[in-house]
Amino acid sequence: MKFVESQIVEMLHQNDKRVIAIIYDNYAPSLYGVVLRIVQSEEIAQDVMQDAFVKIWKKGTTYDSTKGTLFTWLLNITRNTAIDKLRSAGFRKRGKNQSIDDHVYNHVSSRGTNPDEIGVKELLNNLDDKYKEIIDMIYFRGFTQKEVSEELDIPLGTVKTRLRTGLRELRGIFDVTSVIGLFLFFNSISLLL
């Protein structure tokens, strides 16, 4: 069953426990993808997911939809939990040369990815690597801009500029996919007619 974000938020605010399963069904794969890239271990990633969902449940009534989307809120909690876990475990070995997806997909290739996303992934190849690298380091691995600057040995200002430009480009790509999606949608309808 598909739930609209506003319904989920309402349930969160009412402390309705059923909301956890709904959030899990809707967002767990996206969150798990981020967590696994940060902690680089399926075992730790599962611990992080459990802790993060406990926090989501406890903080649920404090979520303010005027300050950001539900997903941003969920991801911030989950990402911070993952980073805290890494710090507390005392290992923060995140080399820039390590290919995230190589590592991750070595572990989970058997489960595969959502086929719906495959087309999008191909489109994402259009994103310049210099932007993708920075976005991924920050978004998927919890680096700060300063850490990216040190890690990649480029000025902080350049990191910021590339992040901004990268995000705008990314948005452009997704807008295109939406257009393509609409195009395909109408195409299939016209075919049916």
């Binding site: 767990a28 794969p29 996206s30 969150l31 798990y32 993808g33 981020v34 696994l36 890239r37 399926e42 990633a45 599962q46 997911m49 950001g68 989307t69 997903f71 941003t72 991801l75 997806d101 991750v104 989970v108 489960r111 595969g112 990815t113 959502n114 996303e117 999008v120 992934k121 994402l124 976005i135 978004y139 998927f140 995000l167 990314l170 948005r171 997704f174 996919t177």
Partner: peptide, 17 residues
């Protein structure tokens, strides 16, 4: 931007066990 990043995350989603 937020929706864009959500889509980005979905594109990189990994189904948990």
């Amino acid at each position: 931007l937020e929706n864009c990043m959500e889509k980005y995350a979905r594109a990189h989603a990994i189904p948990p066990p």
